[in-house]
Design a binder for these strands. Structure first.
Length: 810
DNA sequence: ATGAATCGGGG
DNA sequence: GTGTACGATTCAT
């Protein structure tokens, strides 16, 4: 039989000593497909002498528990050199590590005979190995030939695959999406789930167990246990392909797992009957559900999207506002607790809970196509890809290219090497301090993908660094360094990046020829965006100490070339009579003297002039023209502080960078003050109104007219209370709660306010239940909350603390 | 002053 | 499946 389906999840399993790779996917008609393949685990050994090594390896493993299947001699490219390797086939996936641990004893440096020099690719996960070798994109259309296969999976079609082919088709079938969200309430130091909402194309539901005046989409059950059981039932009967959460890896799933265990309910959401499992990652674990894809949008947004967002706060509320123009229902945590406790306004609580799922679902409609395209580019599963950092994306892209090109994948560095690598620092991008204040008519120029262009143009790659063949050529030296890169042979990384850039340029050309609103355009756009993301990630990967293709000199050379070209651009601009208001790494903000005419035309001419001189694929582009811009110098630590500026274009569109501080460890009042000030200043330029507003807030604080809930600060107790070395305000508040006989647990959200009295800020932190308005230390709130929040924006217009406060005294 | 420790996001 | 951010705030020295 032959089946065509869209792949979205893969894993492997062992059955009676047999190893099978398993694919999950969906056909055009909406049928769920599970597909099994046989495959052999293996890794590579670099021998000193292949025959001797083969003999010694056999001898070494003779009496061991782990057995190797067989060995083959193969030729592979190692760091640009053709070498002979032994390909060692194993019985089970976990055996590659075990057998490698035996074989490494033959290395000379470990006291062996020296017949073996090194081992490679022994720690690549088995299903990833399969995807790499079969050249399968992480999420793509496949054609599989095979036979029907017995299984007890929740799938319409189960096949044992024989042949597999990647199809060109791009558009995924209609995948079924389901988002969910929980609300919790702390009781005796433990979180209880009080509400759970679900949102899908054809499903809107809230589960809870307090009676209330609810709309029909609320289902009231008897208890938390029933709620959890219903959740499992609903998910399985809705049978989604993709499950979406916002911070589900670190919050919703851990809480659900803990409550399921407490209530003795099994958390079976998978298509193979297995319980949800956490797969370990660097810091947090990821909740994995076999046969479906759990995508935690928060992880993806934090790792990949955040540099391109204006908001610095990655809350569901802030991200939804920016990307969807839609917000959470306003309800602070105290209100939520009160609502549940007193069983009042429970309908609002349900609305609030449902809205979170709705926002998560809507964000997914926007972001899932992007995630799937990135997954196709790097050739890894959507589950894995959506959780990768920038560097990992680059690394996996290089990994698939290396396999395609018959190259050995470098080993991950050892812990000591990582530590050593981390001790080196090097110069970053060049920053020209901004001319502080307000500027009219500013053109923003930037280098298109500066670092990838430099890597491609100057052949920057670990193996081309300081080659012996080009030592005496002087025209390819990296500025301000003693490095050079080979001019004779292409480097691996540079070649791959060059192809990536060219592919993207082609896509962008094609995009120009088709309707921007068409479905095809949306795909092409996500495709080119994914290429851009991977290309941009490569520079950072060079500098990341844990990377397989780590190369400090390569990273250093990128920034050195970058500094060279931005400085040159600044000089050229000044020669042409422009004023350079600000420049940073790859961008340059210019304005022209008032006597001159059309900024747009002048800028275009300047760009033409500069671009003729630039080498290779380096190109300076017009990013935008703004009628007004405000810039803030970096302050005390040059080179470390983030960009801070605000721009307004002809159509009153705002671009704000680095002016936001509002997180939950700030009180509501501070958040509101900052929001109001931003509105006054940047939208309407009403500076005096903003000043008066802030002064009025300060007055109200002094008169104690601000409700307590706007002064509450929320901070999490991330570890057991006894293990704190530095006792911060939230820790002190928690200690006081404990002393007063209230339960305190790890992971608890501590609510407190700063009160008057003796000692440090921390010592004056009081649990919110024990605070009255009279106790509030108004000067803390004025100096540490209101003024910093307001000044962050107001300093743009050179308003000082004194000016803000001075007149408030009258 | 400067450095170390801690936090965010979710509820 | 080894391990990644980073800027701001407060305590500690």
């Amino acid at each position: 039989m032959r089946v065509e389906f869209f792949l979205f999840d893969t894993d492997y399993l062992q059955k009676e000593g047999q190893v099978l790779v398993r694919f999950f996917g969906k056909t055009e008609e909406g049928k769920t497909v599970a597909c099994f393949f046989e495959y052999e685990p293996y890794f590579y050994v670099l021998p000193q002498d292949p025959n001797k090594a083969e003999r010694e390896i056999k001898e070494l493993l003779k009496d061991k528990k782990v057995k190797l299947k067989r060995m083959e001699k193969v030729t592979k490219d190692l760091e640009g050199q053709e070498r002979e390797f032994l390909k060692v086939f194993c019985e089970l996936p976990q055996d590659t590590q075990k057998i490698r641990d035996e074989i490494k004893k033959l290395e000379k440096r470990r006291g062996g005979s020296g017949s073996v020099e090194e081992e490679y690719e022994y720690s690549i996960n088995f299903y990833r190995r399969f995807l790499l070798d079969e050249k399968i994109d992480g999420s793509c259309w496949l054609q599989v030939k095979g036979e029907p296969f017995e299984s007890n999976l929740n799938a319409d079609l189960t096949i044992k695959g024989r042949e597999i082919k990647v199809l060109e088709r791009v558009k995924p079938p209609a995948l079924k999406l389901l988002s969910f969200d929980i609300e919790t309430y702390e009781k005796a130091g433990k979180k209880n789930i009080i509400m759970l909402s679900l949102w899908g194309e054809k499903l809107k539901k809230v589960l809870t167990y307090h009676q209330g005046n609810f709309p029909p989409w609320v289902e009231v059950v008897d208890s938390e246990k029933k709620l959890l059981e219903r959740f499992v039932e609903i998910v399985n009967s809705y049978d989604p392909d993709i499950i979406l959460t916002f911070n589900g890896d670190a919050f919703d799933f851990p809480v659900i797992q803990e409550r399921m265990a407490q209530n003795k309910v099994k958390l079976v959401l998978s298509r193979d009957g297995e319980e949800m499992k956490f797969t370990r990652r660097a810091r947090v674990s990821s909740a994995r559900i076999k046969g479906r894809v759990h995508i935690d949008l928060f992880t993806f947004i934090r790792n990949i999207l955040s540099p391109n967002l204006q908001t610095e706060v990655l809350s569901l509320d802030a991200v939804s506002s920016e990307l969807l123009g839609d917000q959470k229902i306003e309800m602070d945590y105290q209100e939520l607790l009160e609502s549940w406790q007193k069983k009042k306004d429970l309908a609002k609580l349900a609305e609030y809970c449902l809205k979170d799922s709705e926002l998560t679902f809507k964000l997914a409609s926007l972001l899932l196509p992007q995630i799937l395209e990135i997954s196709r580019t790097v050739g890894q599963l959507p589950f894995d890809t959506s959780r990768m950092t920038y560097g990992q994306l680059a690394e996996w892209y290089l990994t698939r290219k290396a396999v395609e090109m018959g190259k050995i994948i470098p080993n991950q560095p050892k812990w000591e090497d990582i530590k050593k690598r981390k001790t080196f620092t090097y110069a970053g991008g060049f920053v020209k301090e901004p001319i502080a204040g307000l500027h009219e008519n500013v053109a923003v120029l930037d280098f298109r993908s500066l670092y990838p262009s430099i890597i491609a143009t100057f052949n920057i790659s670990p193996e081309t660094l300081n080659c012996s063949c080009c030592e005496n050529k002087t025209n390819y030296k990296v500025p301000e360094t003693n490095y050079w890169f080979c001019q004779e042979k292409k480097g691996f990384v540079s070649q791959v990046i060059k192809e990536l850039i060219e592919k993207r340029a082609l896509l962008k050309e094609k995009l120009k020829t088709i309707d921007r609103e068409s479905l095809e355009a949306r795909f092409l756009d996500n495709r080119q965006l994914s290429l851009k993301i991977v290309a941009n990630a490569t520079y950072g990967m060079f500098a990341f100490a844990g990377a397989k293709w780590y190369c400090r000199e390569c990273a250093e050379s990128c920034t050195a070339f970058g500094r060279h070209f931005i400085k040159q651009t600044i000089k050229e601009a000044e020669n042409k009579g422009f004023t350079v208001v600000y420049a940073d790494t790859d961008s340059c903000f210019i304005k022209e003297p008032e006597s001159r005419g059309d900024l747009f035309q002048e800028t275009e001419e300047f760009l033409n002039y500069v671009n003729k001189k630039l080498p290779g694929i380096l190109e300076l582009e017009l990013q935008g023209i703004y009628k007004r811009g405000i810039f803030i110098p970096r302050g005390t630590a040059p080179g470390t502080a983030k960009k801070r500026y605000a721009l307004i274009d002809e159509n009153d569109n705002l671009v704000i960078r680095g002016l936001e501080t509002v997180r939950r460890d700030w009180c509501n009042l501070a958040k509101e003050v900052q929001r109001q000030v931003l509105v006054y200043i940047l939208k309407n330029k009403e500076v005096n109104k903003a000043l008066n507003y802030v002064r009025n807030v300060i007055k109200m604080l002094r008169k104690r007219q601000i409700p307590l809930k706007d002064l509450t600060i929320y901070e999490q107790l991330t570890k057991p209370i006894s293990s704190y070395k530095q006792i911060g305000p939230h820790v002190v508040a928690a200690q006081k709660m404990l002393k007063r006989g209230r339960p305190v647990g790890e992971g608890m959200l501590v609510m407190f306010a700063i009160t008057q009295g003796e000692g440090s800020i921390s010592e004056r932190a009081e649990p919110i239940e024990d605070v009255t308005c009279e106790m509030i230390d108004e000067s803390y709130y004025i100096d540490n909350q209101i003024i910093p929040a307001a000044l962050r924006v107001l300093q743009v217009l050179s308003v000082s603390k004194e000016k803000l406060l001075g007149e408030a005294l009258f």
